[in-house]
Nucleic acid binder design. Sequence first.
DNA 1: TCAGACTTTTTTAATTTTTTAATAAGTTTC
DNA 2: GAAACTTATTAAAAAATTAAAAAAGTCTGA
Lengths: 407, 407
Amino acid sequence: MSDKNRLVKSKLLRELYFEEGLTCADLALKVQKSFPLTAKLIEELVSENQVVETGLAPSTGGRRPLTYALQKGEMYLVSVAMDQFVTKIAIMDMQNNFVGPVQKVVLPLPNNPKALSILIEKIKEAIDNSGIEVKKLVGVGIGMPGFVDVKKGVNYSHLHLGNKSITRHISEKIGLQVFIDNDSSLIALAERRFGAARNETNAMVINIGWGVGLGLILNGELFRGHEGFAGEFSHIPLFLNGKLCSCGKMGCLETETSLLLILEKAKAGLEAGRLSMLTSINFDDLEVACDLLIQAVHSGDQFAVELFSKAGYNIGKGLAVLIHLLNPKSIILSGRGSCAGQIWLAPIQQALNEHCIPRLYQSTHMDISTLGLDAELIGAAALVMENFEKSQPALTAQSMGFNVAVN
Amino acid sequence: MSDKNRLVKSKLLRELYFEEGLTCADLALKVQKSFPLTAKLIEELVSENQVVETGLAPSTGGRRPLTYALQKGEMYLVSVAMDQFVTKIAIMDMQNNFVGPVQKVVLPLPNNPKALSILIEKIKEAIDNSGIEVKKLVGVGIGMPGFVDVKKGVNYSHLHLGNKSITRHISEKIGLQVFIDNDSSLIALAERRFGAARNETNAMVINIGWGVGLGLILNGELFRGHEGFAGEFSHIPLFLNGKLCSCGKMGCLETETSLLLILEKAKAGLEAGRLSMLTSINFDDLEVACDLLIQAVHSGDQFAVELFSKAGYNIGKGLAVLIHLLNPKSIILSGRGSCAGQIWLAPIQQALNEHCIPRLYQSTHMDISTLGLDAELIGAAALVMENFEKSQPALTAQSMGFNVAVN
DNA sequence: TCAGACTTTTTTAATTTTTTAATAAGTTTC
DNA sequence: GAAACTTATTAAAAAATTAAAAAAGTCTGA
C-alpha cells in the first residue's frame, strides 16, 4: 500500500527536520516501524533526492551506522511572527536558516479590519521575492498574540473573519497549507525542538515580552488546553496592588512585570531625574528603547539593573505558582526579554526561595533561551513541520486506514 | 507469539474493568488492534472464563453487536486510602463493589516509624479476613498524602525507608504488586474513570479536605509532573495575609481555605457566641465535627453557610489561576468537602467572575463529585488496573518485543 | 404488516507487514 | 590478531491487517 508508506516517509522527513544525522535504527524507533521497512523507505527517499547520507556516526562498539539528513534545496517553509504592531515574515530552509532577509512590516492588529488582507499580500510578496518554486514550499506557520484556537484556525482576539477559519482563508488565497498558534506557544515549541528545552518532557517556557506569556511543555508535547487558551500567565490574579490591567481586572501578574512596564518605569524614573546612562533614550519606538535598556543592563547601569531585578522577582512569584502546580523539570526564559541574560536569574531565584516549597524548586532547573528574538519564527516553522504528515496530499482519511484514523 | 497476545489480552481486561458492556469494535479501537485479532482474543478470554458475554447492545441501525464484561468472582483488588491520622483498607471487586466491610485503622503518619509495619500487618489481615484466594488478587493500590514519587515508589513525607522503595518493600512482604500515589491524584483518577470527570480529557479535580488538593487530568491522563509532585494547589502563594502556613511560608491558599480552617473558624465563632444550630458540637473528633458542619449546611444554618461560602470564594480565587494557566474543560469538586454539595458553586462562580477573563471561565464547566468519600479507595483500585498490563507475569522487557519496549 | 433496501457486525480469505534468522561487513577490545 | 559486538542486507516464516463476502438485524414505504 503506497499511501501508507507515503505517510511513514513523511514521518521520516519530519524526524530528520527536527534532528539531523539520525541513523536508520534511530528512525525506526521514532516512527515505530521495523528496521527492514524503515531501511527500504529511507533508500527510496535517498533515490527520490529528498534525503542524503551524511557519513558514519561514531561507533558504539561495532560497525559504524550510516547517518541521514534532509537534502538541501528541496523543501522550504514560510514563517510569520506577529505582535501587536509589527509582523515579521521569513522564508526558512530545513536547517533553520533564513533564506533571504527577514521582512518587517508595521501592521497594527487591534481593530484593524485590513490587517488580514495586508498580511496575505505581504506573505505572497515574500514568497515571490524569494524566487523559490511554490511546490517546494511545505506550508505557512503563523504565530500571533491573542486567544488562538489551533484546531478551528481562529484567533478570537484579532483578524476576525466571522466564524470562518482564517487558516483556511489564507490557505485558499496562497495555495499552501497554513497553521496558526499563539506566539508564546510557538516560542515554547521552538525551545522544545531546537533551543534550551530540547528534548525536555516537562518544561515551562516563559515569553518575556510586552506581556508575560507562557508555553507549557507537558509530557514532551506542547499543551494547549481545552480550547487552546492555556498559558495565560500574564493575567493570573497574583497581586493586591489595585492596578488596573489591560484585561479589565486588577492585580494581574502583568501589572507588576513585563517589558512594557519596565519601559514605563524607566521613562518615569528618568523624567523624575534618576541618574542613568539612558538619559537621551527615545521612548517612541518601543523596540529600540527596549534594546537600549537591555544594553544598559549588560553595561551594568544601576537603574536598568534595578528595573529588571524587580520585574524578575515578580516573574519569580508567578513561577512559584507554576512550580507548585506542575512540578516542571526546567524553566526557560525566552522571548525578547531573555536577551537581558543572566540578570534575571538571581531575583527569580530569590522569589522562589521565598515562595516555594524547597523540595519543589530544588529539582527545577532554570535556563535562558539560546534562540532569543528568532524563537517565534523558528517556532512557526516547526509548527508546519509538526503537522507535516497531515499536510501531505494524497492522504485521505480512508486511505490512511483504520488505526491511523483513531488518532 | 503468545506473550504478545497476552499483553493485548491484559489490555482488553483493563478496558473492560474501566467500562462494562463494550463491544468487540469498541475494544478493537481502544487497544488499537484490528477487529479479527480482537475478536479472536476475546473468544479466548471467554473460554478461559475471564470474560462473559452480556447480551446485545442497542442497534445503531444494523445488526446488534455482542457486549462483554469481566467474569465475576475471578479478580479482586486491595485498596488503601490513608490520611494523616486514619487509614481505610478495602477489598474491591471488578465492579467497584466493596467485598466485606471497609476496615478503618487509626494510624497517625507524622513521625511514626512503626506506621509502615502496621500498615503491612493490617493489609495482610484484610486479605485473610476476606477469604479470597491470593492468586485472584491483582494487586494493592495505596493513596497517601505527601510528596509521592510514583515511579520510584517513595513517599518523601511519610513512611520513610531510607532510599528503598516502599512499594517494593510492601510487595515483598505481601506477595502482590503494589502501587502508590498521592491522595489527590487518586481522587482525580477515580473521578476521571468512574465519576464526574468520566472520559474528560481536560479536567481539574479539587480535593477539598483538611487541605486543598488538586489532581490534574490533562490530555485524558493523570498528570504528575517531573517527580510526581504536581498539584500542590494548597501551597500556591495567593494571599498577602501574613498568616503562617504549615509549610513554613505565608499566604498559601491553604491559609484561607480548607475544611480544617472552617472547623477552626466554627469553633472560634461559637466560642465568641455566634448563634448556630451547632452549639453543642465536639471538635475533638475532626471527622464527626466536619460531618455535623456539613449537615448544618444542608439544613440551612446561616453560620455554617457563611463559613463554607467564604472558603468557596477563596477556592474560586485559586481556580481562577488554574483556569488561566490550563484552560480546562471542567472542574470537579471532590473529596470530603464535596459532600456539602451545591453550596460551593455560587461563591466559586463569584470569584471566577471577579478574577477570570470571561472567555476563559465561560467555557469551563463546574461539577460536584458523585463519588464522595469513596473516591480515594476507588482511585487506589483504579491505579492498580491502570498498571494492569505491566503487572502481568511472564512479560519480560525482551519478550515484549521491539515496538513495545519503546514506550 | 411485510418486502426490500440499507446498516452494522461477524466471518473468511488475501495481502502486507513484521519477525526471525542467517550472512556479511566493519569496530573495538583484550 | 582473534574474539566479541554492532550494523547492514537479504530471504523465508509468522502474524497481523486489510479487504471482501456473508450474516443478522433495522427501517421505510406501500
